[in-house]
């Protein structure tokens, strides 16, 4: 039997392609959340950024015909939500978890309200780069049609890792996240650093949202995100606040999300719902196991409200 015909090959190729597609929004949200958490805040509201970003991107692309402009607009909408979150949390006695949940509701609500008119009309989507033509195998070619945002996401993660290690601002963000008194003693404006970190994290989450509506699945509707924004928080814990590990973790979550569709591709529909639940099961599993893990307790930024 020919290799390319075997069911296993089909599943693996479908999972590879799926993992790349599904992991991209995870990656953006997770790297954004990583930046925010490194500064000592948790933003649980990134689900709102994701959904609003998706809506704004789609609407912008629809009106301007420029999908990349949509990506940018999604990022700006993320900054807007991030600034609100960051500023609210800087008020005395305001809890970042509670604000995050409120922001999630606010972001999705805003998106659903303004997004009604864009559910039907088609908007120009993002192009992809065909990287698999040399293989000559159609299924591989399809799997290797990769959206540039995937590479941008990886580049952002690498850049952030360098930022944390080798820039003054990176060290200041880590200082703020680990010991606010030490940061204050250095004359750092702790609240400002956190607001900026939350806004930048919000930008990345918004861009992640644009991928959903402008590439995969590639339309705007209210059921577009299935909790990726929330799962990304778990993913950051799993990646132990390291942007490079976020890449691997996002890929893992992406692969888990691709199991269901991959089996469907070879006609196995039994247990479809179970496989579709794989990312959520993975989230639960990771949260339960990392809560007890020694290294994650050690590497958690000392100022996080869940750690304190």
């Amino acid at each position: 039997m020919d290799l390319t015909d075997s069911a296993l090959f089909t599943v693996l190729v479908a999972m590879l392609g799926g993992a790349i597609r599904v992991s991209t929004p995870f990656l953006f949200v997770a790297v954004g959340e990583c930046l925010t958490e490194k500064s000592g805040r948790i933003n649980l509201g990134l689900e709102g950024n994701l959904v609003l970003g998706a809506m704004v991107a789609y609407a912008t692309s629809f009106h301007t015909g420029e999908p990349w402009l949509g990506v940018l607009a999604a990022g700006v909408s993320g900054i807007f939500l991030g600034l609100i979150h960051g500023t609210l949390c800087s008020l005395p006695r305001v809890n970042d978890i509670a604000v995050g949940i409120a922001m999630m509701a606010f972001g999705t609500g805003l998106a659903f309200y303004f997004g009604r008119p864009y559910i039907q009309p088609p908007a120009p989507l993002l192009p992809s780069i065909p990287l698999g033509n040399w293989t000559g195998i159609p299924s591989l070619q399809r799997a290797l049609e990769i959206n540039p945002l995937f590479f941008v996401g990886i580049a952002v993660a690498l850049l952030m890792s360098w930022f944390f290690r080798s820039t003054r601002w990176g060290l200041i963000v880590r200082t703020t996240g680990d010991s606010a008194p030490a940061a204050k003693a250095m004359g750092v404006n702790v609240d400002l650093v956190r607001i900026l970190a939350t806004a930048s994290g919000g930008f990345l989450a918004g861009v992640g949202g644009s991928f959903l509506s402008l590439y995969y699945p590639g339309s705007w509707n209210e059921g577009l995100s299935s909790g990726q924004g929330l799962m990304a928080v778990a993913l950051v814990i799993f990646a132990r606040w390291d942007p490079i590990r976020c890449i691997w973790a996002a890929f893992l979550f992406g692969a888990a999300g691709a199991i269901g569709p991959a089996f469907q591709a070879i006609g196995i529909t039994q247990g479809f719902y179970f496989f579709n639940a794989a990312p959520y099961i993975l989230t639960l599993f990771i949260l339960a196991s990392s809560a007890r893990s020694r290294s994650s307790a050690r590497e958690a930024p000392g100022e996080l409200s869940i750690v304190k």
Binding site: R168, R174, D178, A182, E299
Partner: peptide, 13 residues
């Protein structure tokens, strides 16, 4: 000192 930063990072920051 900042606990998660190395000694070198603490001195530089």
């Amino acid at each position: 000192l900042v606990p998660s930063l190395t000694a070198a990072e603490n001195l530089v920051v």
